[in-house]
Amino acid sequence: MRKIKFGILSFAHIHAWNYAQVLKKLESAELVAIFDDDKERLARASSAYNVKDTYLNYHDLLKRDDIDAVIVTSENARHKEHVIAAAERNKHVIVEKPIATNLRDADEIISAAKKYGIKLQVAFVMRYHDASLHIKELIDKGDLGKILSIMSTNHGKYPGGWFGDPDLAGGGAIMDHTVHVADLMRWYTGDEVEEVYAVTGLNIRNYLKVEDVGLISLKFKRGIIGSIDCSWSRPDTWPIWGDVYMAVYGSEGYAIVDAFISNVTLVKEGKPLEWRYFGPDADLNMIEDFIKAIKEDREPRATGYDGRQALEIALAAYDSIRKGEIVKLPLS
């Protein structure tokens, strides 16, 4: 069967490097071209993944007829520009989360995808992690009864670079880490959020221009309660990058997803303790499914709309912090 040919638009986001690795691994995919406007980073990616066709101008990459799909892993605020340009060239798109930094951009992305008839997948990789998938199936079978509340954390370290630039990232920890677990909550409950309350406090890292602390309390339309801790509250010396933790309280049972707890403990002389992950590869599962979605001409598991709805929750959190009160969705 024919391989799906991929391009990657920018290695600004750290996940670009993971996706490139997956593309090299997959039989069904081929990474044929990469773009980055940072010359040095482009050269590094080119040699890391042995990709000869490199572009400093993404339009030149998108002009190529042999490319079927692109992965957009540029800075959050540049997603719109890149996704729409790709859609106009009829490339299918995986866009990194958050889909954009504001709802207008998100809506324009969704419209462009629709207009040009491309597949648009938002990189909610947690929908493809076996642990979160297992609990989704448990919920759908009714094993937990009616969902009453979901407590979640998506902790991380400070990712550095443009993640600290409010213009490029659209915010700090809340923009970066709300959407994965917010998306899982929407997916698990099959419901939309109605109310958001959020706080931030003094920063852990006082030199940052964006917030690294955030707590969000949610209520879904059918009354389910939720909470998200999206803080970059792990120091650089923490043994792993962070966590995705979901505690699901049901009327008939209780279940926990601790998606990145499967690690080997490793200690090297003079180095901080390390947890080396051996759990499932959600990135690989996602890209494999995206390829299938293209071949079978069906919607990807996490659509542009899902990306928009999760983004709205993060934006509502900022709104709540500004106002010091509960914010109702949809945002006007």
């Binding site: 509340s149 407590m151 309350y197 706080v199 406090g201 602390v213 707590l215 309390s217 909470s227 309280y249």
Partner: peptide, 13 residues
């Protein structure tokens, strides 16, 4: 069942 979000006087949450 209750979850609570707290603000402390010293700026912690």
């Amino acid at each position: 069942y209750v979850h609570a979000v707290l603000k402390f006087s010293n700026g912690a949450v």
